[in-house]
Amino acid sequence: MIAYASTQPGWATGFLDEVWWSRFARPRLHAWQSEKTPVRLVEQSWEKGDPDPKALACYGVLWQKGNPDRSQIWLRFVTGRPVSAISIQFLQECCERLAAQGKRNWLMIWDNASWHVSKTVRSWLREHNQQVKQAEKGVRILPFFLPTQSPWLNPIEPKWVHAKKAIVEPDSLLSAKQLAQRICAHFGCSYEPHLALVEKVS
């Protein structure tokens, strides 16, 4: 099914996942160190008054353009942590971007995180697909859930690992915005405002 969808006109195959980017993670030296240039590690710790969070949550979709072309990633950072309502925001944005590319179907591969399988998300997916069918426009989402605790089946996971090695700053502490911009530069995508829960007006 994945191989079929990735080669059909009007179809998109995307592997979705979330990741945390730590501002305090110790770098792995071989990510940037040459054999002749030693790198000094700076002890980094949370300081009182630091306005930024310790880590940034991020949604990502790795698109399979062909076999084995899996080079394009779409990212959106999150204020807070991934939850069902923000997952829906991200899915809506992806559908809008896919529709602009002429896609009609999205084979979406992701895991069984609680904010993926929640009643809220499942209801939204069902209603979204019904609206696409009735209106005969938009992008239908076909979710495909990976087995529990099997990150090796999602090809976006190694992308996260390599990116974390590449973007960490060994000599100073990056601000949250600097970290996000560096991550976007690594993946070749634009930095967008963070997704956030909509505050209810009382």
Rank of each mutant, 00 (worst) to 15 (best):
M1P: 08
S6I: 10
Q8N: 06
T13E: 11
F15D: 07
D17G: 04
W20D: 04
S22M: 03
R23M: 04
A25E: 15
R26K: 13
A31T: 10
W32S: 15
Q33A: 15
Q33R: 15
S34A: 09
S34W: 11
T37H: 13
L41M: 13
W46R: 13
K48M: 11
P51Y: 09
P51Q: 06
P51A: 03
K54C: 03
A55R: 15
L56D: 05
G60L: 09
V61N: 00
V61Y: 00
N67L: 12
W74C: 08
R76W: 00
F77I: 03
V78Q: 03
T79Q: 14
G80F: 06
G80C: 02
V83D: 09
S84R: 11
A85V: 03
A85Y: 01
I86V: 15
C94F: 03
C95K: 00
L98F: 13
A99Y: 03
A99Q: 11
A100E: 13
K103Q: 14
W106R: 07
I109R: 07
D111S: 03
D111E: 10
H116W: 09
H116K: 04
T120C: 08
V121Y: 08
R122Y: 02
S123D: 14
W124F: 15
L125R: 04
R126K: 15
N129R: 08
Q131E: 13
Q131M: 13
V132Y: 06
V139L: 09
R140P: 00
L142N: 11
P143F: 12
F144G: 07
F145R: 14
T148I: 07
Q149G: 08
S150W: 07
P151N: 06
P151E: 02
W152V: 00
L153F: 09
E157H: 10
E157A: 07
K159Q: 15
V161P: 00
A163G: 11
A163H: 00
A163K: 03
K165S: 09
K165E: 12
E169K: 12
E169C: 13
D171M: 11
L173Y: 02
A176I: 01
K177D: 14
A180H: 08
H186E: 06
F187R: 03
F187G: 05
F187I: 06
C189L: 08
S190C: 11
S190M: 11
H194D: 14
H194L: 12
A196F: 01
L197Y: 08
V198W: 00
V198P: 05
K200W: 10
S202D: 11
